[in-house]
Design a protein around this nucleic acid. Structure first.
Length: 712
DNA sequence: ATTAGGG
DNA sequence: CCCTAAT
């Protein structure tokens, strides 16, 4: 996989590199304009002229395709096509090429078409061409602007991008994919520039925001002109499920970033759309999970509790899994993606509230966290342990006059994330990687848990009032957790926001991931709405992670107060999706996730030791009931396993022990108890005596314990 | 559903 | 932690 990735990346890079900047003729034309008007108009003009130029050239090249040198445009188109074929094996070419041109927007439209097609076919595809073009354009402009680019450059770029977005929109019509494409391309271009400039946060933010909004609006505004149908026509989704989330990947394919090992959450929330529901039991969960396991990600703890018919159904299924995305540091595309994500992040975080009264600034943290994590990391395998499993945010809640309870979540911590990076990766790449991962998580693989007084509120069916969350007192102790969602099921039909299931009322269960497919843009808003509803209602009280649904979606959405932003998001999704390869294998892995790792704390170990001393080693269920009744995430199997490891740990040299050090005293007790119970398997029934004895025995004296046992 | 043990 | 097998 890695090799492949690299190749892909390299290939990509290569293409990009090779692609000629822009026809000189174009440049020439551009220059004058630039000089004359400068600024927005200039950008616009430039774009238009470029488009024209390209169109023309395209035509020419078509007629004389044999031309060795070929024009830039031709090359680009070709590449695009090739890519498509490479990955999809489907004849995209024809369609792409014959796609004519729409006047000014010819260039754009064409590339757009390509993209669109590619996407459709593959369900994932980057719009490299667009980017390239845009970049070129931008560069050209910049170079032409006789050195005085400075701060204006950005502005211009933004505008250009916007324009581009416009064109694209027009060309492509209302096609959702298209929109995304536009968005992406714009963003990418922009991001690149920004990146070059050093990623100044402020700048990025501002710029980003603008871009995201503008293009989106434009896109929406424009009526569908043409090729929308293309999307439909194309043999797009290989995926049985048309709406499969994968539909918009951007760089994935190129990068080939997908590996079976990756468990990172998908990047975009849309991607998680599909879910399979299944009845839930812990065991059941496990069963399912076992089928799909990823190395690094773990699903949230399972719930026990009864399952509500509905609930069970909903949460039981598989949820979208997260995939970890391996990084391609060397690839620019990757970087862009990362940036993109970053931007997304910021956008979200920046967005404050929406009428729901639920505001979430938290997202911002993630990025922060990511950075921090990076700092500390140095090996090839990084583990950012963001507070083990769940993070709670500080949130303050306000009780409104009406019966609604308003929550304000200040921040969320990002759940544990595993990142794998090459040793030679740069800090910058690491940062990006982390950011990427974080973003990905936030983008979708998260499930929200509700804590009240430190305890998880499990019953999703209860109302806030019933749960006590409607009362001021409890609100102070209200907490939320973000956990990686456990299972993802690609195969289920997505639930649209409009779908009934959407929560609300007392049985909030799950909110399906909404906007997924291409047509989604329109849907997104709904999601938002839903979110709002969710927020307002008791739905919030959710609980067990397993059962609980994944309000992830909601959560995610929540983050974006601005509907526009939401709409815009799809573009992002594309990228995110891109990460996930379509192949069955990966899919499969996506379905189940490994539970999140939750190292036992010393206190837990102590409790375990205590319980085992009293109950013996063969009664894990009793141990569970006795000492871990409230620890939903600790199953008796877990306890048994832990004991096993404890015994092992106690036997090895302290230097060889890893993780949080367990007090020697406890380890001694472990050995003592272990040896004792080993000799009294037959007597496990008569634990009373044993328990008493064990308690008495000296923690450090193994033989003593054994002896005592013998005496008994 | 538990337990035991390998991976 | 997961998975399987045996209870």
């Amino acid at each position: 996989m890695k090799l492949k990735k690299r190749l892909d990346c390299g290939l990509r890079g290569f293409h990009v590199a090779i692609i000629p900047k822009a026809p000189r003729s174009i440049r020439r034309r551009i220059q004058p304009k630039k000089t004359d008007e400068d600024g927005q108009v200039c950008a616009f003009e430039l774009l238009a002229s470029l488009a024209r130029q390209i169109l023309q050239e395209e035509t020419e090249s078509s007629s004389a395709s044999s031309n060795a040198s070929g024009n830039d445009h031709a090359v680009i188109g070709k590449d695009a096509v090739e890519d498509g074929r490479q990955y999809e094996d489907k004849p995209v070419k024809t369609e792409c090429l014959d796609h004519g041109s729409c006047e000014v927007s010819a260039v754009v439209s064409e590339s757009a078409s390509l993209n669109c097609n590619q996407k459709c076919l593959l369900n994932e595809f980057p719009l490299v061409e667009e980017d390239d073009i845009l970049e070129r354009t931008l560069k050209t402009v910049g170079s032409n602007s006789s050195g005085k680019i400075g701060g204006d450059l950005k502005l211009e770029i933004c505008k250009s991008n916007m324009l581009k977005g416009n064109f694209l929109s027009k060309a492509e019509g209302g096609s959702p994919n298209y929109r995304e494409s536009c968005f992406n391309s714009v963003e990418n271009a922009f991001e690149q520039l920004v990146e070059t400039k050093a990623m100044e946060t402020g700048g990025l933010n501002t710029a980003t925001t603008r871009i995201s909004k503008e293009p989106t609006e434009l896109c929406m505004t424009f009526p569908a002109l043409t090729d929308s149908d293309k999307d439909v026509k194309l043999p797009s989704c290989r995926d049985p499920v048309p709406n499969a989330s994968f539909s918009r990947h951007r760089n994935d394919i190129k990068l080939g970033i997908r590996d079976d090992d990756d468990n990172l959450p998908r990047f975009n929330k849309f991607s998680n759309k599909l879910k399979v529901y299944r009845p839930v039991t812990r065991i059941g969960d496990r069963r399912i999970r076992k089928l799909l396991t990823s190395k690094y990600w773990k699903s949230a703890p399972k719930l026990k509790d009864f399952e509500h018919p509905r609930t069970g159904k909903q949460d039981g299924g598989m949820r979208p899994s997260h995939r970890k995305r391996k990084t391609c540091y060397n690839n620019e595309k990757c970087h862009r993606d990362v940036l993109y994500k970053w931007r997304r992040f910021y956008d979200r975080s920046s967005v404050e509230t929406f009428d729901g009264g639920f505001s979430c600034e938290s997202v911002t943290n993630s990025p922060e966290k990511g950075r921090n994590g990076n700092k500390s990391i140095s090996g090839s395998m990084l583990q950012t342990n963001g507070m083990t499993s769940s993070a709670k945010g500080h949130q303050s809640s306000l009780r409104s006059k009406d019966s609604n309870v308003k929550f304000s979540i200040k921040s969320f911590k990002v759940p544990e994330i595993f990142i794998e990076v090459s040793e030679t990766a740069t800090v910058g790449s690491l940062k990006r990687t982390v950011m990427d991962a974080v973003t990905a998580i936030l983008g979708g693989g998260i499930r929200v848990g509700v804590l009240m007084q430190g305890k998880k509120v499990r019953d999703d069916n209860r109302t806030l009032s019933q749960t006590g969350l409607a009362s001021e007192d409890n609100l102070d102790t209200l907490g939320f957790t973000l956990d990686p969602s456990s299972v993802e099921s690609p195969n289920l039909p997505l639930v649209c926001p409009e779908d009934p299931p959407l929560l609300l009322s007392d049985a909030p269960q799950l909110v399906a991931r909404s906007c997924e497919t291409p047509a989604l843009d329109s849907e997104c808003p709904n999601a938002l709405t839903n979110l709002a509803l969710l927020t307002k209602t008791e739905t919030l009280v959710e609980s067990n992670r397993e059962q609980a649904i994944s309000h992830t979606d909601i959560l995610t959405d929540t983050t974006l107060p601005d509907s526009r932003a939401l709409v815009a998001v799809p573009a992002l999704n594309v990228e995110a999706l891109a990460v996930v390869p379509l192949n069955q294998k990966s899919r499969r892995s996506d379905i189940a996730q490994r539970r999140t790792r939750r190292p036992f704390s010393v206190s837990e170990v102590e409790a375990l030791v205590q319980a085992v001393e009293e109950l013996g080693t063969g009664r894990w269920r009793d141990v569970k009931l006795r000492s871990f009744e409230d620890a939903d995430h600790r199953t008796y199997v877990d306890l048994k396993d832990k004991w096993k490891t404890l015994v092992h740990t106690a036997r090895i040299a302290p230097q060889q022990r890893r993780g949080e050090p367990v007090p020697q005293e406890l380890l001694d007790r472990v050995l003592a108890a272990h040896s004792y119970w080993s000799q009294h398997q037959a007597k496990q029934q008569g634990k009373h005596q044993a328990a008493g004895v064990l308690k008495i025995q000296s923690p450090t004296d193994h033989s003593n314990g054994a002896t005592t046992g013998n005496q008994l």
